[in-house]
Design a binder for these strands. Structure first.
Lengths: 206, 206
DNA sequence: ATTCTTACTGAATGATTAGTCAGTATTCAC
DNA sequence: GTGAATACTGACTAATCATTCAGTAAGAAT
């Protein structure tokens, strides 16, 4: 019987829960699934999280925080506003089987009826929006971008990507990385009145 | 005890199920909820649908068919391609509390793990895409629109609206009908290289 | 009118699973 | 080393629900 301090164990459980949600979907995860995968008792999970609902919310919060940390790392990197913007958006964008996205589609569905969860998502989104609009503002200051309302522009861009995520994750439409990138560059270029080449477009479309 | 023929009863049950899904969310609907609301026994539901899973899939199929009927009515109406396109997209677009959209966000989540349901959604989306791309093609023939790939253009437009639906339904961001319409007009105008006024824009933005 | 088919019900069943709790073992404080 | 706090478990409980089934009655067929 391994004993850990509560803090470390909590994180371990959260990580496993996120993994299970990815695999089985949010509504199908059972406490026993998480416990079995960690080779501990179900009671251990309840001991640390009180209820299943809290566990799920905490797990999604944990996933959101990790995503935001990564976003922070991207935004703090060196590069022009255009480069940073594209780096952030490309990371946000669904790619491949978009496994990372499934959890958020699940979360959308659950959040419609769960206020606490909705708050987590709203906050996550607010931070994304803030980050994106900040680089847009920086670009506007530099004179490379043009935008009368960077927050709205950010909303439009992320909404577009959310919609594409649905196509890929739900409809299993295989949009290639190259296509997605091209669409994104096109959209950003138009939205911010900037040339596609400034966004790192490989070759202009004919 | 009222007796109805199977066909009519089925439809009645499907309508009530859709209503219940809207109210409670897909994963929370119980057979007893549907039965109680109709003042019949739970066994009646199973008698007509075999399993709950089938009931839910049939209910979403029913909802999809009704949406497509409405789409057909719009597309068969009189009007220029530009008018028809905007009518279709504005009906697709989430409005107000977007109650009608909740069911589809639920469906997205469920469809990621349910092949039968995914097929329903893929088909629904395929038909939307076909309809939208058809009017685009018609507009291109008329010389009002420009588009090198109407199917891809349709995907981009509906994806954008799906993303906005998430904002409204999940994040409860109140995007006004006017704002949404303005964003949509802007996007369509750019996507199809047409003037906003041709799309029924009330006043140009300053 | 009688039979047959079909729509329907009430009551039971069985499977699932979140959460409880009394107790055990480990670590920590001193 | 002793005791207290803490992490943890096994076995149980209680509740929830989909589904079954034996039977009932409405309506159709003859």
């Amino acid at each position: 019987m391994k004993r850990m301090n509560a803090q470390a164990r909590r994180v371990e459980v959260l990580a496993e829960t996120v993994k299970q949600i990815r695999e089985k979907g949010m509504q199908a995860v059972r406490i026993a699934d998480v416990a079995d995968a960690m080779d501990v008792s179900s009671a251990l999970i309840i001991y640390h999280f009180e209820t299943k609902e809290r566990l799920l919310i905490d797990a999604l919060t944990y996933a959101a925080e990790r995503d935001l940390l990564k976003l922070g790392r991207i935004m703090r990197g060196s590069g022009s506003p255009a480069e940073l913007l594209m780096a952030a958006l490309e990371w946000y964008a669904p790619t491949g089987q978009a496994r990372g996205w499934q959890i958020w589609v699940d979360a959308w569905s659950a959040a419609m009826r769960d206020v606490a969860l909705a708050e987590v998502l709203v906050d996550l989104h607010r931070q994304w929006n803030k980050a994106i609009s900040s680089v847009i503002d920086a670009g506007v200051l530099d004179g490379v971008f043009q935008s009368s309302n960077s927050l709205e522009a950010a909303t439009r861009l992320t909404s577009f990507l959310d919609g594409l995520a649905v196509r890929m994750v739900v409809h299993k439409e295989p949009i290639s990385r190259a296509d997605l990138r091209a669409w994104l560059v096109r959209q950003v270029a138009w939205e911010l009145a900037v040339d596609q080449s400034a966004l790192g477009a490989v070759a202009p479309e004919k």
